[in-house]
């Protein structure tokens, strides 16, 4: 694509400015804004990779619809607290379409679902966690132990806790002034039940539905030639 306003012109100064800002925040011990800058910087490479490609219309739309599905999936399950298939959708999307798409689906769905559940300082953290969930699912899928339901179930269970681990960091950074082992222990103890529910619901969905979902997504990708597209790049 020829672009007269070259994005690179803004890109490096922006990154540089953010790094300077990060140093100021480290020095002033303001960890919440610092964490946002670091999260943003850590997600930039993935989005940049996505930008560098000439994205086919099908790829863009499939990523968008999967992210929307992951976001909307929280709606019918509102009656059942602790159960939400968002993580399951992100993981399955990553299995079929690869780690990069997994990351994009995860992080975009976090951003989008908070549009109706409420945006807040937790949004970038959720974007990061779900993005990483998709990314790791896509990468680990090349190993044989991940390719059956037991391996996937264990993976989903672990991510229930990993997700809590990352999200608790935001609670610790955002809510407490003294960050010590006591605060960590308190927060992790408080979130244990929710993390367990998240992990178990992941296992539940993976065991019951992962085959069916993989079939559904693979069928869609084959029909419109998306899988071939993701493999060739």
């Amino acid at each position: 694509m020829k672009d007269r306003r070259n994005p690179k012109i803004y890109f490096y100064p922006l990154i540089f400015f953010l790094m300077v800002l990060a140093v100021i925040f480290i020095w002033q011990e303001r960890y919440l804004p610092l964490s946002f800058i670091l999260l943003f910087l850590s997600m930039v490479p993935f989005y940049r990779r996505f930008e560098r490609k000439k994205a086919k219309a099908e790829v863009v739309v499939v990523i968008a619809v999967l992210a929307a599905i992951a976001a909307v999936s929280r709606v019918p399950f509102m009656a059942l607290p602790g159960i939400q298939p968002t993580s399951f959708v992100v993981i399955t999307a990553a299995l079929v379409f690869g780690p990069e798409v997994g990351f994009l689906v995860g992080s975009t769905s976090a951003l989008a679902s908070n549009l109706f559940l409420g945006q807040g300082p937790w949004t970038p953290w959720q974007m990061f966690s779900w993005g990483m969930m998709g990314l790791s699912a896509g990468y680990l899928y090349r190993f044989a132990w991940m390719q059956n339901r037991i391996g996937l179930g264990i993976f989903g269970f672990c991510w229930g806790f990993l997700f809590g681990l990352i999200m608790n960091l935001w609670i610790v950074v955002g809510f407490f002034e003294t960050i010590n082992w006591g605060t960590f222990a308190g927060v992790y103890a408080a979130s244990f039940y929710f993390d367990l529910a998240h992990g178990l619901s992941n296992v539940f969905f993976i065991v019951l539905f992962s085959r069916q979902w993989k079939k559904m997504l693979e069928r869609a990708s084959r029909k419109f030639g998306i899988l071939g597209h993701t493999e060739e790049r």
Partner: peptide, 20 residues
């Protein structure tokens, strides 16, 4: 101009959510 694919992707998601 800064991130065309990402911006477009997010816009499409925003359209899909009410539809879905």
């Amino acid at each position: 101009s800064l991130a065309p694919n990402t911006a477009f992707n997010i816009t499409v998601v925003l359209r899909f959510i009410p539809l879905l």
